[in-house]
Design a protein around this nucleic acid. Sequence first.
DNA 1: CGCCAACCGGAGAGCGCTCTCCAGGCGGGT
DNA 2: ACCCGCCTGGAGAGCGCTCTCCGGTTGGCG
Lengths: 350, 350
Amino acid sequence: MSKDRLAPGATPTLEHVAKVAGVSRATVSRVINGIRNVDPQLQEIVRAAVEQTGYVPNQAARSLVTRRTNSVALVVSEAEHRTFDDPFLGRIFTDPFFGRLVSGIMGVLRPRGVTMVLMLAENDAARTQLIGYLKQGHVDGVILISSNVDDPLPGLLTDAGLPAVLSQRPAKPLPISYVDAAQSAGAKLAAERLIARGCRRVATISGPLDMPASQDRLAGFRDTMARHGHAYVPSVEGNFTQETGERAMLQLLEEHPDIDGVFVANDLMALGAVLALRDAGRRVPEDVAVVGFDDSNAAQMSRPPLTTIRQPLEDMAAQMARLLLARIDDPQSKPTSVIFEPTLVVRESA
Amino acid sequence: MSKDRLAPGATPTLEHVAKVAGVSRATVSRVINGIRNVDPQLQEIVRAAVEQTGYVPNQAARSLVTRRTNSVALVVSEAEHRTFDDPFLGRIFTDPFFGRLVSGIMGVLRPRGVTMVLMLAENDAARTQLIGYLKQGHVDGVILISSNVDDPLPGLLTDAGLPAVLSQRPAKPLPISYVDAAQSAGAKLAAERLIARGCRRVATISGPLDMPASQDRLAGFRDTMARHGHAYVPSVEGNFTQETGERAMLQLLEEHPDIDGVFVANDLMALGAVLALRDAGRRVPEDVAVVGFDDSNAAQMSRPPLTTIRQPLEDMAAQMARLLLARIDDPQSKPTSVIFEPTLVVRESA
DNA sequence: CGCCAACCGGAGAGCGCTCTCCAGGCGGGT
DNA sequence: ACCCGCCTGGAGAGCGCTCTCCGGTTGGCG
């Protein structure tokens, strides 16, 4: 059906299409890219020729001259030493927040014809290889999801002069765009909820404290509690997995058996905490109220369903994509940051 | 530090490196690609020049002539009509099996310097765009994770002449390589386990029946039960989410209150089933034994921990990557299939 | 009616790389 | 001592595309 005329075995090129249409390469190129005005009648002829030959532009050749690839990388980076017992990949992909992120990014990228390349950087070797790859001009820019404070990647990216956007405020000030949620504002909502319920002995399970987000949530929670007269808020550190949430809750119960409210820094850990509470014979929320963070699937699946803090992840991801595209279009534009406000989602656990 | 000598603002090219090293472009290229013998002393000089200039090969230029990109796509495809209420992305990324898959693939790809591009095809529009992208020669080959029977993608891929490997036997015979697990053998293991425990009233919760894997598991289970004298095995269809597992279990309990054993086609649904059983006041495994499928994190997290069928996902994924690379190296090689044997993992639920 | 401007299509020069072809040098065999 | 062949490095031709520059045509205005 297609692919007759010229081009014996090979894939058709601009040249072939031009010959079939009886015009020059340049004209075909102009029609395909919709650049400059081309006689509508000619356009029709060219389009027909494209159809007939089954022509598809060669991306490599195009990139070579335009210096654009029309694709961006989504890099997920994690510090090596934070890999406890479960494999990195299991963690990141298991966490529902990732899907929402991808979904938000795609929503912006797809209509613009930009494709997304997913890359993992789970240790230093991978990181080195990654930088090499990125420098080869494989992508136009990078969205970096980095979860630890001393990640060298943000610095490496700015050094390499690659347009990039971070998923959270970088640990050290850096000329780089980022999107973040007001973590402490979220923690404040959680604290206020627990106080409103009348909780008197409140504790918290935090995320890994080398992450700015974890620090902010912890600080925000403690501040708000302090402002309401609760000077001392016990806390145990987890690593965002259900298992560590369970362990942390166990520890809290042992050290402070009279606890009646807990703020857990993410839903997965909150799930573990609820399980631990149940095992210990405490009813949620009657005996102990639990507030999670993220509003992930886990929150809805839990029994009782989790009261939690929702970050507008899809919106945030979409904003990252938009910031990145803007920066690609104009590399000179100065780095921007956008902060989103979290909201309280009330369910049954608190 | 680097990037001095020549090349004022621009990124260094082969030409620059050659000039710095005092050799020809060809020689630098040979050293970089390790092709043909080059005088070791010259090699040293060239390497030093590369270092000094901070040279990184331009992938576009390279691809243009080699017709290779050194990257493969991991395409995750899903039929549009199967999107019930939860978003597609949430499902796929939430399922732990995905992480294991990626991990296995990366293990093979990374050492070979091949990068992985993740692409989603969640509806027909996306699929069309995807095919266009693939035809542009953006990747050398495709690993396709497709979950429904009437996916047009396998056919489109063979039509496009792109090297590809499927994650399961295609619904219709097609000249394409694939890797699969012996689904029915896994179901057989589950059946035998339930029988060995002395279960007499057995039911099953299947996956979506438009998936060959679901069909095979159901058929394998029924066959084995039949062979042991259980003529009738009630079944309810789920869609692999915890929620549908819960619903399905509820339905089974209502229709067959005397059930004492269930085979659930994946762990996530099994988790839901266990929850439903508990809510209904049945003890697992004392009153009802439950066998899952996949040996995902969910199986270990569940209480009680799930007895389940383990597919060697990492191995299977690695094999897919190997098959694909082989096919890319020699496009003439004929399609191969590799079937892996599942194993029974005994925990507490059965 | 003439001039200028605006507009549109074609020619051709690269983008940075690989790879074939060729020339020169050296060693070994007769 | 000569010749042949192998080994190594250089020259140069593209890979398929975009985009600048140019020339020709047309329309509007003086």
